[in-house]
Nucleic acid binder design. Structure first.
Lengths: 339, 339
DNA sequence: GCTCGCCTTGACAAGGCTGTCATGCCTTTA
DNA sequence: TAAAGGCATGACAGCCTTGTCAAGGCGAGC
């Protein structure tokens, strides 16, 4: 029960007023170094921690950052949390998670949260980050927010993204460098912005290396295992099948692997398979999947950083800040030279 | 900017004192029904939401439930959050997530959190739930907590669990009912309580159905894909291999599937494979994995329920409350009759 | 030596809500 | 009819911090 040490005790022990203690705590200027040290010692001696409720009631900060999420993969969500907390802890902020039910009226769910808890900022993950109604509520409530990998309205708010086009380009180039020329592609969910970008990168790489993008080697998928499985069946169960397949995400790539297994196509000797995202599943197949790692934790940390730095508003040039992070090509065993 | 509606406005509009509004908000007794309705209407009309900081500063509740987690799978963590929030929302509670760094001094990380934010309760997931130092801190700070699937010291606190023994028993019985008698088993991480329980259930089922547990058909694993893969290699690469393998979790079962693929053993015609946990990966293989679904969301909801109901303390009989939830056998395509 | 202005510090109010205690009224009991 | 008790409500203090503003101390410049 070491509880209930208040700022008053600290003030008493260090022989200053509570206001001065507050100053030291908040790293405000105009405190003599001598005094500062004395206060810090008292804080340490009493094991004092300021009470967040009182702080946020009195001041403007709530020391809470919200993470809103909808639906994406658990691995993604967890990584976002880990990345965000890493940055938040440094400044004494806490993370409050708000899973949203995307089948209902998301904006209506968001409004009460913002109202009761005055969060200092919110991190929005896809696909909530593209829900205009939610953005409206956030703006109406005056809560700063950063979007992770937004798809629409890029200029509307601060955001953190990865270069999907370039990543897809490099993955395709990797396959080409292994000697592949007939590279099948499985597109992602048409409503996700990343889908278009990834296809764009693939097409650009093919073209630049002088290979045609064969329409019958490009299939539509929906980011699900099953859709990858079905697309792969169409792609592979025929004589002029591609020698490599690049799926827009790992789940679909796993679907491709499953079909390859069924058709007794050796991976990677007969068929190379590449995915995108580096989900845990990518390592849980044999052979392990070559894929693109999105630096999710780093992206979330960057988002938290923007929020904590108060840098979410448009700057002089009119554009809200946007950070572009590097991806990483993860070459494992599912891709290899032909033969 | 619909912000800043306070209890005073509500009081004014409904013609009562702020205290009465407070009573209505908190469902306290001794409010005339007439008055209650009038206040509720004013609340609705003004779209009023009490400010959590003020509430927790003034009262004893913080309206925050913590979820501490360490390391387990993202799917697990996310499910816990979803389950807990479902119950918490009903009562206006929010979820605060605290990933812990298990490589460091976990208790030292927990203490400051508890100190600044006075959470009303904490949900502990494995393996933090078995960290005695953390439990000590929680108790010292007087914060109620519920452990999910704890392994040690079961009587120490309230907990929510699943019957691992019975689930493993039933899965084994399922395999036996398909005609299998030589059923291999891959144990889980020896430091996880569930490992022992699952093995126990397997062994009991074998014995009760008159089948011997062959020591050379039981392998040690560590809950990882790789350990499952390696265990499966030892189990399958020999003439007297089992006709079915029951792995203590899905990741290891996926390892078994990978080996089966490599050895060209048809699943389930030549080899049945069963897992445990029903992770997302179970559906992302072909054929899909037969497994046991742990009702994680329901367990987390039950934990939140105990916390919100204040029922975490030992009752008259001396034992803290413990809830045992039902699992579900999920039979998919990876198990079938010998043939 | 005096004024000005900066640095350092403190007193006090405010923030929105709940807990405590007091009040008035109505119903029950003797 | 008077006393007692229960219910419905309100006044006010207090929760712990930060923001505002004022005050005192001290060195610089005249």
């Amino acid at each position: 029960m070491s509880s209930k040490v208040t700022i008053h005790e600290v003030a008493r022990l260090s022989g200053v007023s509570i206001k001065t203690v507050s100053r030291v705590l908040n790293r405000e200027p105009n405190v003599k170094n001598d005094t500062r040290v004395r206060v810090q010692e008292a804080v340490a001696a009493l094991n004092y921690r300021p009470n967040i409720s009182a702080r946020s009631l009195a001041g403007s900060k709530a020391y809470l950052i919200g993470v809103f999420f909808d639906n994406p993969s658990p691995a993604y969500v967890t990584d976002v949390q880990l990345g965000a907390i890493a940055r938040c802890r440094e400044e004494g902020y806490h993370l409050i998670v708000e899973p949203l039910d995307s089948t209902g009226d998301v904006a209506a769910q968001v409004e009460p949260m913002l109202h009761t808890l005055r969060m200092d900022g919110v991190i929005l993950t896809p696909p909530v980050c593209d829900n205009a109604a939610v953005l409206d509520v956030l703006e109406a409530e005056g809560v700063p927010y950063v979007r992770l990998s937004p798809d629409q309205d890029l200029g509307r708010s601060a955001s953190v993204r990865m270069d999907d086009v370039r990543a897809a380009y490099e993955m395709t180039a990797h396959l080409i460098s292994l000697g592949h020329t007939d590279i099948g592609f499985i597109k992602g969910h048409p409503e996700h912005g990343a889908s278009h970008l990834r296809y764009e990168g693939y097409a650009a790489a093919m073209k630049e290396h002088g290979h045609a993008v064969r329409e019958d080697h490009v299939e539509q998928g929906w980011f699900s295992f099953r859709s990858g499985f079905e697309a792969a069946e169409r792609l592979l169960d025929r004589p002029d099948r591609p020698t490599a397949i690049f799926a827009s995400n790992d789940d679909m790539a796993l679907g491709v692997m499953a079909v390859a297994n069924r058709l007794r196509l050796e991976v990677p000797q007969t068929l190379s398979v590449a995915g995108f995202d580096d989900t845990p599943g990518a390592k849980v197949v044999w052979p392990q999947l070559t894929t693109v790692r999105q630096p999710i934790q780093a992206m979330a940390a960057a988002a938290a950083d923007l929020l904590l730095g108060g840098a979410t508003q448009a700057e002089g040039d009119g554009a809200p800040p946007s950070r572009l992070l590097d991806f990483e090509l993860v070459v494992r065993e599912s891709t290899g030279p032909i033969g």
